[in-house]
Design a binder for these strands. Structure first.
Lengths: 201, 201
DNA sequence: AATGTTATTCTACGAGCGTGGAATTATCAA
DNA sequence: TTGATAATTCCACGCTCGTAGAATAACATT
């Protein structure tokens, strides 16, 4: 119980990083409005004032903390180049990998939970994620209506993450990886390469 | 501007219903923690006390207000019986219908937004929706691993609603109905009737 | 007409929120 | 060794929250 009273701590404790970790966890588990500065501070064993000292405001903290756990500009070209065969499957395996890692999964659920609120900060995050994710994805889809196809893929990815890790639907939690990969792979192939419907006009 | 001062209003104003509508809208647009009793009251042009008078607490109000905009026990048997051909397509058209109607769409986004929070009430809603929706759906899928298939379908439905109406991804907003119906129909067919991967063990 | 019941508002309590000023202590530069 | 700077806590402000007590006005029942 060494609850120090005041002033700077002796060296060695990377408080800033501790705050970031705590904030990322809180935002990921409770969403933006459900997360309080004081709760983050408590988790990080730190005075709330320290957070505003480092990051300014709650919104700025949020914007600092939330980032995609992979680089779309690098990942999508890698995944979507090469033979058409197994394309959807490769994408599915990649997504499942991301969701398997607890740390990156938390970031994803955090973004989802935060994006679900109507706060100004959330809108900003929504825009940022959509642009940074959908644009590179669409650029490598290589078919007609790439934005539509990319958006449909993203919708299934978000839906899977939501159902599996936010709602925690039992059948999705307990499903074997190979099963999910197979189904998702096929679905992604539909979105990537399926023909468009005939237009009537 | 006849802001009456106190006491019961002259007849004709169905205040209770007004509150329900306002609450449904607020919850749908701001999620559970982001919605305040006072905001609902303001929208309904009513004193906050009236809400607790009618509904007890915020949680009870939420539970009262939130319900699926369709009856799964009735709808799924209807949609999923009959010839296998066009099965996924019928399901897709039905989902798009629900999302096209502003009122039922609001209920859906409301449930999604609320389910994204970690509040106790949200967990309760999550359970209720999952049970009431997934069980009847799985019962009429009529293939191997029905719970898994039903859950995957639900994940795509939720993902579509989230991407299209919460995040408001442009390509999904502007897509023509026929395009979405075609893609979703195929995907639902994959989930409904696609073969399972071979097991290795 | 009298009485009870229900709808409605005013007011307010205690709690928790984000945030900022000021004091205190450790580290760093000279 | 001294002085500057950064990290850290304490405290407090003003606000908003959910909720409840009490007063009042319209309706319902007799």
């Amino acid at each position: 119980m060494t609850s120090h009273t005041r002033g700077r701590r002796p060296a060695g404790s990377d408080t800033r990083e501790t705050i970031i970790l705590a904030a990322r966890k809180r935002f990921s588990e409770h969403g933006y409005p459900g997360t309080t500065m004081r709760a983050i501070a408590a988790d990080a064993e730190v005075d709330p004032r320290l957070i505003t000292h480092f990051f300014g405001s709650k919104q700025e903290l949020f914007a600092t903390v939330v980032e995609l756990p992979f680089n779309p500009e690098v990942v999508f070209p890698m995944l979507l180049s090469g033979s058409d065969d197994g394309l959807g499957r490769r994408l599915a395996e990649f997504i499942l990998n991301i969701l398997e890692n607890p740390q990156s999964r938390n970031v994803i659920t955090g973004i989802i939970r935060a994006a679900a609120s109507e706060d100004a900060a959330a809108a900003q995050i929504r825009d940022r994620v959509v642009v940074r994710m959908l644009t590179p994805l669409a650029e490598h889809v290589g078919a007609d209506r790439p934005e539509l196809r990319a958006s449909l893929i993203a919708s299934q990815v978000v839906g899977l993450a939501f159902a599996r890790h936010v709602v925690e639907v039992p059948a999705l939690r307990s499903a074997e990886r190979a099963e999910l990969a197979t189904f998702l792979g096929r679905v992604f192939d539909v979105y990537l390469r399926g023909p468009l419907p005939p237009v009537d006009g």
